[in-house]
């Protein structure tokens, strides 16, 4: 590259995803291009069916794209061999909306973090359990958490576990898909604070329909509607001076204290 700017941690170019439904092509994503810089948090907002979750799933490799390009640190992953592609995808972790569904109910927490680390090449159980204990403490869980099962924890605690697992491999990108949406408001605050505290050098793709959470947590916001990116900008620009009519209607609909219907 000619200029000095480092390549974004993750970039998607002209991403398209189509499904065939009843003999018709439905575009879940239609020419989406965006980039997330190093240690940057990009919020993806939009309503159900906007394609925001599909975008996140494609970025972490849970789904394939129909066409387009994904670049990690400036390298297109379609152009690299299988081993390198897997290594690059391993640097992308995901946090889901329902931590209970994303944790194995029959495995202790420590064991699950061990499994994640093992999948990434660290095979020693004792070593991995020690790592798990440190991680669980960092996300604010009691010391004996590693030996317990998912059902023994509250929803907020389970999301802390999911976060501990996501950061265990030292990912460069974390895709958080509605990670705080199922939590009570008071717990939501705590989890957002925790995620902000742990941010460090990790880049986040923060997918949410919760505008207030996005406004609090993200540096920039991209607004999606019906598979297309309708607007993107800094958080302040999007929240204070939205340009696209869809963004305006989305913000207008957010309930606020002090307004009556």
């Amino acid at each position: 590259m000619a200029d000095q700017t480092p390549a974004p941690a993750i970039e998607v170019r002209d991403l398209t995803k189509s499904f065939r439904v009843n003999g018709r092509d439905v575009h879940a994503l239609n020419g989406v291009s965006l980039a997330v810089g190093h240690a940057e948090t990009l919020g993806i907002v939009g309503e159900s069916g906007s394609g925001k979750s599909t975008l996140g799933r494609i970025v972490v490799g849970l789904e394939t794209m129909s066409s387009g390009e994904i670049l990690h640190e400036g390298t297109a992953i379609s152009g690299v061999g299988r081993a390198e592609r897997n290594a690059r995808l391993a640097k992308c972790q995901m946090i889901f909306q329902d931590p209970y569904a994303s944790l194995n109910p029959r495995m202790t927490i420590g064991r699950q973090i061990h499994e994640t680390l093992r999948a990434h090449g660290s095979r020693q159980l004792a070593h991995n359990l020690a790592t798990a204990a440190v991680l669980l403490e960092r996300v604010g869980l009691p010391q004996d958490a590693a030996g317990r099962y998912p059902h023994e924890f509250s929803g907020g605690q389970r999301q802390r576990i999911a976060i501990a697992r996501a950061i265990s491999t030292g990912p460069s990108v974390i895709v958080a898909d509605e990670a705080v949406s199922a939590l009570d408001v008071s717990i939501r605050e705590q989890i957002l604070d925790l995620m902000a505290e742990l941010k460090g050098t990790t880049s986040y793709l923060f997918i949410s329909h919760d505008m207030a959470a996005v406004a609090k947590f993200c540096d920039r916001i991209a607004v999606m509607h019906k598979g297309r990116l309708v607007e993107q900008g800094t958080t302040r620009q999007i929240i204070s001076a939205p340009q696209d009519p869809y963004t305006q209607s989305l913000l207008e609909a957010v309930p606020r204290i002090g307004r009556r219907r």
Binding site: A196, M211, A212, A215, K216
Partner: peptide, 20 residues
């Protein structure tokens, strides 16, 4: 008060976040 306080308005979220 805590419930109302936890319901951030977008404007509050902007200033509260401090990340941007």
């Amino acid at each position: 008060k805590a419930l109302i306080g936890a319901h951030m308005s977008l404007e509050e979220a902007l200033t509260d976040g401090g990340l941007h």
